[in-house]
Write a protein that binds this DNA or RNA. Structure first.
Ligand SMILES: [Mn+2]
Ligand SMILES: [Mn+2]
Ligand SMILES: [Zn+2]
Ligand SMILES: [Zn+2]
Lengths: 144, 144
DNA sequence: ATATAAATGATAATATTTTTCATTTACAAC
DNA sequence: GTTGTAAATGAAAAATATTATCATTTATAT
């Protein structure tokens, strides 16, 4: 269930953040949108409500909200520019958060889930993104 | 199985792209790395081999390689700046590639797969990213 | 060897994100 | 309500990242 404006405001304050009109407006904008929004898009919308707001404040607010997990960051097919070598056939990736090592793995099938989602939502599903993040063995040892 | 330099070169030519020393070097760099690399990182490495190469050529080559699916683009925890409202509990996202609508869904458990991967690779898994991309009902109709 | 379209690199333009710092403001304490 | 204070804001600049333009070079087919 999606978080409400109220809940988000409360959590912010619980963590010692001040509840400014700018932050309220950013929260309201995101909470009332069905889409995912970039900082620039949020700025545009918030600007109507708070004409004097600066784009920096958007960035700063988003950082806080994301850190507290009050908003979700999406990849959404957008282009991250980090690449690894391709492989034959469909596969997914396991990535070390410390050294960046990438392991390909295959044999995990998401078509059942895809069908369930398609049935439940009416979406025509085009693809998916599945990545795991963790620490490789080397990097675990270094942590000692 | 990871694609080889040879295979990639062949595919490029099959698609009518010329096989320049610059492109060879970019391919070799990516193919011989265990990590995922940004354009800047690739540039640094390739530059040692091809001191006169420009960063633009890296970008252009990556675009081609990605389009032909000879390399994989990773999100890798990197920060895409597109956000949607948070939700209670762990969940994943289904996103319309046309209008950006985001649907949350829960109840799909990846811990079994996580455990399998952990056992097989020795990784200590910290998290994952699962997103589906598709067309929502509205956007399907507009396509007619 | 030659012709030619494709690719490259220098440069500039654009877009995105972060830093810095003086001013303003939310909020707690009185 | 007033006041004090640390936190937040916005303007501006700086730093990064990406894309566009165009004259020159080059891979490849002939
Ligand atoms: Mn891969
Ligand atoms: Mn969500
Ligand atoms: Zn590692
Ligand atoms: Zn849609």
């Amino acid at each position: 269930m999606r978080l409400t404006e109220r809940k988000i405001a409360a959590t912010l304050r619980q963590h010692g953040y001040k509840l400014t009109p700018q932050r309220r407006s950013v929260i309201r904008t995101i909470a009332s949108s069905q889409d995912h929004l970039t900082p620039a898009a949020i700025y545009q919308k918030v600007h109507q409500d708070q004409p004097s707001i600066g784009l920096v404040t958007i960035y700063r607010t988003l950082d806080i909200l994301a850190k507290l997990e009050l908003i979700c960051e999406l990849h959404a097919g957008g282009s991250c520019h980090s690449y690894t070598i391709g492989a034959r056939g469909h596969h997914h990736h396991l990535i070390c958060s410390n050294c960046g090592e990438v392991i390909d793995f295959a044999g995990y099938d998401l078509t059942q889930l895809e069908q369930r989602l398609s049935r439940q939502t009416g979406f025509e599903i085009e693809g998916h993104l599945l990545e795991f993040i963790g620490l490789c063995q080397n990097c675990q040892q270094e942590d000692d």
